[in-house]
Amino acid sequence: MPENTAQSYDPSAYPPVAVTVDLVLMSVVEGQLAVLLQRRAADPFANKQALPGSFVQPTEGLDDAARRVLADKGGFADDTDVWLEQLYTFGDPARDPRMRVVSVAYFALVSPQRMARALATRDDLALAPLADIAQPLAFDHAAIIALAHDRLKGKLDYSPLAFSLLPALFTLRDLQAVHEAILGVQLNKPAFRRRLLDTGWIEPTGEREADTAFRPAELYRRRA
């Protein structure tokens, strides 16, 4: 019989490391890009604002953990209309005072209407414009938000993700306002509209907006 070469190991010989997921949930409200924050109830950083997050359970995948946090802490029990993607892994040894914790960050874009429904479900959630976040956030969450914003700006030119922030029917003015809120700059209207029409992402509906004091603008939709 061949000798069994399998070796047992001593778990105590390995340093403890935990994994968390943290969610950057963004929306555009009143022309400003904003992020969903949650007030922490316990130490560390009790009463500080932080991103919704949680430790990953031993039998749980990362995406499953992110969806659980989205429902349990973000108030998005029905996440079918939430676009979510993995952002980056943050592993500074000093990022959590409790122990060595590696965070896998996700970010998502949520329509203002969907965000308002989520805010109504919990009193520890707040939607904060990125430009108005004055107090220090818990952990390294300010750096996570900054990276998510940079990723979002970089994807606008080649990904139709901005449509997650719009209703099914929208005007070109609405679409430009979302892009300007994300980029933080004003865009040239003719150049922006020409570029978006050239992408093939949108198509006219033949309908026009209602209840406007100005000439009703044409409504568009995302092309299937």
Rank of each mutant, 00 (worst) to 15 (best):
P190E: 02
A118W: 06
A146I: 09
L152Q: 00
T171I: 06
D150M: 05
A118N: 13
L166I: 12
Q113R: 14
H141G: 07
K155E: 11
L166N: 06
R122A: 14
N188L: 14
L165C: 01
Y158P: 08
H179S: 07
L130Y: 06
A131M: 08
Y158L: 10
H179V: 04
A142L: 09
Q176C: 05
R194Y: 14
V104D: 09
A148Y: 01
V104W: 07
A118V: 12
P136N: 01
L175S: 02
I133M: 04
V178A: 04
A142W: 08
R122Y: 07
V110C: 02
L172D: 08
D157Q: 10
L152A: 00
K155F: 01
P112L: 09
L152F: 00
D140M: 00
A148G: 07
Q113E: 13
F107W: 10
I145Y: 05
L125H: 04
R193N: 15
A143L: 08
L152M: 08
A120Y: 07
D150Q: 12
R122V: 05
H149S: 03
L161P: 04
F163Q: 01
P129S: 05
G184P: 14
R117P: 00
S164N: 13
I145H: 04
A143S: 14
I144C: 06
A108Y: 04
L130Q: 07
H179M: 11
Y106T: 00
A120T: 04
P160M: 02
S111V: 09
I144Q: 07
L172Q: 11
V110A: 02
I182W: 03
Q135H: 11
L175E: 05
Q113W: 10
L127A: 10
I133K: 01
L161N: 04
K153W: 03
T171L: 05
A134T: 13
T171R: 09
V178W: 09
A120F: 06
L183W: 11
G154H: 04
P190C: 03
S111Y: 03
A146E: 15
Y158S: 15
Y106A: 03
V101C: 08
K155C: 10
P167Q: 08
S159T: 09
S159K: 06
A142R: 15
A168P: 06
V178S: 02
Y106V: 05
L109W: 14
N188E: 15
L183R: 13
L137K: 12
Q135M: 11
T121F: 01
A134K: 13
P167I: 08
R193H: 14
A116Y: 08
A126N: 13
L166H: 12
I133A: 04
A146D: 15
V104A: 03
L127G: 12
A138G: 03
M115Y: 13
I133Q: 06
A191F: 12
P112S: 13
L125N: 08
R117I: 07
R194P: 11
L119T: 01
R151L: 00
L109S: 04
S103K: 09
F170N: 11
L183G: 09
P129K: 03
L172W: 04
R193Y: 13
L156E: 02
Y106L: 10
A181E: 02
R122D: 10
D140G: 04
T171G: 10
H141W: 00
L156M: 05
L169E: 15
L172Y: 06
D140T: 11
T121V: 11
L172C: 01
V110H: 06
A108H: 04
A146Y: 05
F170E: 08
